[in-house]
């Protein structure tokens, strides 16, 4: 709830939408402006790159299927000089593109068709990471409490023992709470760059972790699987 007030702070964050579809632009305008953001539009990749510089947005929503430039190219161009959070919009069949984008520095992604609630949650998460990176030592989701400074994990009132690798994995997810992390990124961060292709490690360790922290490992509520891409740690703001 307090997340909402943060995102919709007076004056609102400036968001640049780069999309060539008029209907999607209209939908985003309605959704974002009614939530207090101020929205700018670009209808091509080139215009998007220019406006990313001139309008100084705090968040960019980037469509991958642009008429002039490939979305990934646009992202790379922007990343040459800016750290602004980028939320990528794409169609479902383009998993490969999504991974390319995330690896190229996109903060999150959303597949079309999307729910507006989902969109707003992603926007808030992306903005929060920009404004307050890792500000709290204690992280809470559902009945799970993780104290990053004391390196303790509690589920309800019971303390949970995690191996070093499991803890490193969980801590990584918490530091990026709400954001999708690719297998490659997780492997590089937890196991090191030489393990970037060994996806069986993430599958096995996420499985172990879920057994320990989820109520029902077959129906996870804390660590969510992003089909074909990676994992995301659920944040509380998502609760209805």
């Amino acid at each position: 709830m307090n997340d909402k007030s943060e995102g919709a702070s007076p004056g609102g964050a400036v968001i640049l939408v780069i999309d060539d579809e008029a209907q999607i632009r209209k939908l985003l305008e309605l959704t974002l402006e009614s939530n207090g953001y101020s929205v700018h539009f670009a209808i091509s990749g080139k215009e998007g790159i220019t406006k990313a510089a001139s309008e100084r947005p705090e968040l960019i929503v980037l469509d991958l299927g642009l008429p002039d430039l490939d979305g990934v190219e646009v992202l790379k161009k922007i990343r040459e000089w800016s750290e602004v959070p980028v939320l990528v919009l794409s169609v479902r069949s383009a998993e490969g593109d999504i991974i390319t984008c995330l690896d190229a520095g996109a903060d999150d992604y959303l597949t079309k068709p999307f729910r507006t609630g989902e969109l707003l949650a992603r926007v808030r998460t992306a903005l929060r990471h920009k404004l307050f990176p890792q500000e709290k030592p204690v992280f809470t989701v559902r009945d799970l409490q993780v104290d990053l400074s004391a390196r303790t994990v509690k589920k309800g009132n019971e303390s949970i023992r995690l191996t070093a690798t499991e803890y490193a994995l969980l801590a990584l997810l918490i530091r990026n709470a709400g954001r999708v992390l690719t297998h490659k990124y997780i492997l590089e961060q937890v196991w090191g760059p030489t393990f970037a292709e060994e996806t069986q490690y993430t599958r096995v360790y996420i499985g172990q972790l879920r057994k320990k922290i989820e109520d029902d490992p077959t129906d996870p509520k804390i660590i969510l699987t992003e089909s074909g891409i990676g994992y995301r740690l659920q944040v509380e703001a998502e609760l209805p």
Partner: peptide, 24 residues
């Protein structure tokens, strides 16, 4: 995709539990 023969599974280690959970 199926009919155009474009389906080439990108094989990766998967936990079947995870897949079923996701489907549900």
């Amino acid at each position: 995709r199926l009919e155009s023969g474009m389906i080439k599974p990108k094989l990766d280690w998967c936990d079947i539990r995870d897949i079923i959970g996701h489907s549900l």
